[in-house]
């Protein structure tokens, strides 16, 4: 009983955090806020992109209840997490290109593509993460670290402005920050490689790792499906 109360409080905190993350992209619909973030290269690449990714991942928890079949459909084409791995790698690569960064600010359609692609990557890869398993998780992290380091060193070392929307000293700082991020990802990769924990990196997305009693999770979840009028209580990943 005490465990249930404890779990209930923990869950509500997580729900609050997720609600905030889910709503976060709406802030970018407000012109001054969007401009404040996007007019700085560092904030654009290292705050907005991760925030959109996290918002997509958090939206997964909501969409699981709102659109369970869509989520099941996404998961059904994500064999061993390969779709999530592919999507996140491609989206990260695309938005490292200086011309793409400029176009995202100058052309509203490209801007929309940027928001949608990062958000969708978060949505998909949050489900893929556990399916990927150890070696592929390491591959994804290594791939991202390598990409950020390359782009970062290029940004930091180029003696001219690469983006018409950003000053050169900002470009240099963003480059350095990308290298630091790459080093951080490399550190995570090593930690993940030596640590047996199935999911030390995204614990919020993996409540089973935090709560060993999986049965209590099921007890808590099942009535909610019925409340939403979903008579299908089978696991989502089963078509």
């Amino acid at each position: 009983m005490r465990a249930v109360v404890f779990r209930g409080r923990r869950c509500s905190m997580r729900v609050g955090l997720c609600a905030a993350l889910i709503a976060a992209p709406l802030a970018f619909a407000v012109d001054p806020l969007r401009h404040a973030v996007e007019s700085r290269m560092l904030l654009h690449m290292l705050v907005q992109f991760p925030l959109l990714l996290a918002a997509g991942a958090a939206a997964r928890l909501l969409l699981r209840h709102v659109a369970p079949r869509t989520m099941a459909g996404i998961d059904a084409v994500d064999w061993h997490g390969l779709s999530g791995l592919t999507l996140l790698s491609l989206v990260s690569a695309l938005w490292m290109v200086p011309a793409a960064l400029d176009e995202a600010l100058l052309d509203p359609a490209v801007g929309l593509l940027k928001y949608a692609s990062w958000w969708l990557s978060g949505l998909v890869v949050a489900g893929s993460w556990r399916r990927l398993g150890g070696p592929l998780q390491l591959f994804l992290l290594g791939n991202l670290a390598w990409m950020f380091a390359t782009a970062g060193m290029l940004f930091a070392a180029t003696p001219a402005r690469l983006c018409v929307s950003y000053l050169q000293n900002e470009q240099e700082w963003t480059g350095r920050a990308l290298v630091v991020l790459a080093l951080g990802l490399g550190g995570l990769l090593i930690a993940r490689a030596v640590h047996p924990d199935p999911n030390p990196i995204l614990p919020a997305l993996n409540p089973r790792a935090a709560a060993p009693a999986a049965a209590s999770v099921r007890l808590k979840r099942q009535p909610r499906y019925q409340l939403l009028g979903d008579d299908d209580s089978r696991p989502f990943s089963q078509p």
Binding site: W79, G127, R130, R208, P235, Q238
Partner: peptide, 18 residues
Amino acid sequence: MTSDTMPSRLQGTAPSRR
């Protein structure tokens, strides 16, 4: 949440076809 992240080999029947 419990099942969609579970490795597919642990789920249901006829795993090879699915």
